[in-house]
Design a protein around this nucleic acid. Structure first.
Lengths: 157, 157
DNA sequence: TGAATAGCGAAAATGATTTTCAATAACCCT
DNA sequence: AGGGTTATTGAAAATCATTTTCGCTATTCA
């Protein structure tokens, strides 16, 4: 639960996004702020895809194009603000990037698509020892467990 | 229609694919055999995507359509013969499914795309305890570590 | 403030995968 | 074995998520 100095914490400062963007030569825009706001107002670790972002902004009266959404997501991944997730759904999900300490992983029901999160320090241990052993510099680890959730099990008999 | 918990080993029997297919109401075809052969002649744990399969079959003089390839891959994943991998490359990879014991995981260089494999029993342990804790029936686990490989590190200075 | 240019939206383009449909070939039954 | 049923095939068109193009607007910084 500690702030990593390398990873900017945007929780309090409304101005920080601008600082982080400008430091790398990107510009601050209201669209980027609104997208980041969605992630910050959602439960920590909640993941969103481009379509959901588009819909949620529409719902709150903000018109935005998909190209802008995708461009913003890429920039924020590059800046380390967001993390891209592959959940075997044919599209990409994003969530607020968290320091390695509380990195969490996913348990996916392949039948109904339900996704649950969990944490386990062993993942990070294994990830860092494996990457160290091969001289890789570690960026992040994703552990995804596929299975069938209890309610789908009863549905399927 | 669901994954058979008993994972058939096709290493020896050339006839086994037919048996496995027919048991679930699918038909045996030469195309499906040829695709499976590719995986069996490759190094164990080597992953292929639809394009590579198409190309390799062309190279050995076999004409096959992409629709057939994708259909065959889906069927074989359903039957538990193959496993689908998400390697954050915008497309799906497949490899021979192996029993949990020697399930392996991936270390991906986000710069050059190089993929290395490793094994660690801790993964399966965590995967099964997490899924058990939530009542999920476990199908498989994928642990993917992203980083930058040594040669890309020196390139990037 | 104003010039330079990153970012925007709309629409067209892309690339992987999926579906459609008529022709073919596996499977099952006698 | 022969024949009917129907899953599978190939080719082309369709989808779906994502990316790019391009003319216009807005942000940054001197």
């Amino acid at each position: 639960m500690e702030n990593d100095p390398a990873l900017p914490s945007l929780n309090q400062e409304p101005e920080l996004l601008k600082t982080v963007l400008n430091k790398e030569g990107f510009r601050f825009t209201s669209q980027r702020q609104k997208i980041l706001d969605l992630f910050q107002s959602a439960a920590l670790g909640h993941h969103l895809n481009a379509e959901e972002i588009h819909q949620q902004l529409l719902d709150q009266g903000e018109k935005i194009s998909f190209s802008t959404i995708y461009r913003a997501l890429h920039v924020m991944v590059q800046l380390g603000l967001l993390q891209e997730l592959e959940l075997a759904e044919g599209r990409k999900y994003y969530e607020l990037n968290t320091p390695f300490m509380d990195q969490h992983h996913h348990l996916v029901c392949v039948h109904c698509g339900d996704v649950q999160e969990f944490e386990d320090a062993k993942m990070t241990q294994v990830g860092s020892s494996e990457s160290a052993a091969r001289g890789f510099s570690l960026l992040n680890c994703q552990f995804t467990v596929y299975g069938i959730c209890p309610s789908c099990q009863s549905l399927l008999g």
